[in-house]
Design a protein around this nucleic acid. Sequence first.
DNA 1: CCATCATGTTGCAGCATGTGCAACGAGGGT
DNA 2: ACCCTCGTTGCACATGCTGCAACATGATGG
Lengths: 249, 249
Amino acid sequence: MSQTVTRALRILAQLGEGERSLDQLAEVLGVHKTTVLRLLQSLEEERFVYRDAAYRYHLGAGLFALSGLALEQRGIRRIAAPHLAELNNATGQTVHLAAYEGGEVVYIDKFDSRHPVRMYSRIGLRAALHSAAVSKVLLADLPLPERRRVVAGIDFAPHTERTLTTPEALLAELEKVAAQGWAQDHAEHEAFINCVAAPIRDATGRVVAAASISVPDVVLPYEQVLDLLPQLLATARAVSADCGRPEAI
Amino acid sequence: MSQTVTRALRILAQLGEGERSLDQLAEVLGVHKTTVLRLLQSLEEERFVYRDAAYRYHLGAGLFALSGLALEQRGIRRIAAPHLAELNNATGQTVHLAAYEGGEVVYIDKFDSRHPVRMYSRIGLRAALHSAAVSKVLLADLPLPERRRVVAGIDFAPHTERTLTTPEALLAELEKVAAQGWAQDHAEHEAFINCVAAPIRDATGRVVAAASISVPDVVLPYEQVLDLLPQLLATARAVSADCGRPEAI
DNA sequence: CCATCATGTTGCAGCATGTGCAACGAGGGT
DNA sequence: ACCCTCGTTGCACATGCTGCAACATGATGG
């Protein structure tokens, strides 16, 4: 593990919260400002940061460029986008696309609701493994050993009264999800938000991503969210078909 | 300047071109694989990279998250977005938003054309300083000393027959742009693309960003691109007004 | 079924490189 | 004109990065 790189990344994280001066960064990192300066120079050279006329450092455009490349590399995102946009348009609700990567579930695309009350989320953020509907869909498809391993590593922090709080409960839920082909989050993560999620499969049948609809209670009650399930499943099947999955056509 | 950080960022750049194995990265960087491994471990910890089941490294979600934060921080982007979307919708053409940062001009937002023939660009990429219309708008507002300094540093690579190839020609063009309040790129960057760009100003009157319309020749001839200028200028004024610029209201 | 290969990981010694200090310089406010 | 703040530079020291070599693991093929 590289101390230097870790420090550089901590600088980026800091700048993610807003512009910073050299001294501010030095203080937060607990290192001498000379050290910070040189890290920043390297970051600036690659356009990960830039500094304005007032010598404040900001996140730079190299980051956007790289992030754009990273998102483009996920073929699933490009394939799914038109279908998810259509689902978003048809339902008017927030639609997410999430993928499993390295023991986490991450949102890789998002289409915002047209309602004024909206769920907070952002591309790149992690979904809670034990409560988000997309997580259930993705975990449910993992081979059992890995599924157990991941579940064992979860911090079962209760977000609401309905949050599953034991590995056993989650594993049972995942079995159910795998069997029925979709997952729900009935106020398990946020007290006033319900979600449904469905798997997207590639030609080999493996789940490569999950699509979900998230609706605040005040917009639609739980039962009516379940009514959206057929549309969601149709969308997921359509994306799967575009991924080359024969049965889904 | 930190060798270690520079190497880490080179790793990210590599991964931007596609997945890589440890050995591949070691070879490209010209360092021992042990070294690469430890850099990757630090990057992985902050979710800048992740590795799949086949031990291939990919760009990770931490990057998306940070990039999202960075874009959110640019208030101008949020302010401009609805106006640019409307312009995109009204004209059907590709609309860009660009900003000057640290001696470069960078695209910070983009709304794609509905035409099948589209200009290639991506958020985060640099615009050519001596040919892109947005660059002219942004450079034209710099204080003269900095303007001269930046122009002196440009590599006047000719992209097409019409590309300006001398500092003098560019400086003269910038004077003209500053006077008329908009800029054009008449096939100076890509032989078959014409652009017009307009400045967005904040309350102090400084140009904080530039909006542009880019149209391939085959879609609209040059003269008709100029016909779009009134709409573009109206959009730029509307965004400026939202930025608090009194005269623009 | 074992041999071989390819690839990732670990321990360790040496020294390159990152680090902090102190002095310097530039800009802004009083 | 002075001081105060904040970024930059030169330098000596030792931290922590680097490469080597040995080990571990999983895949491939005879």
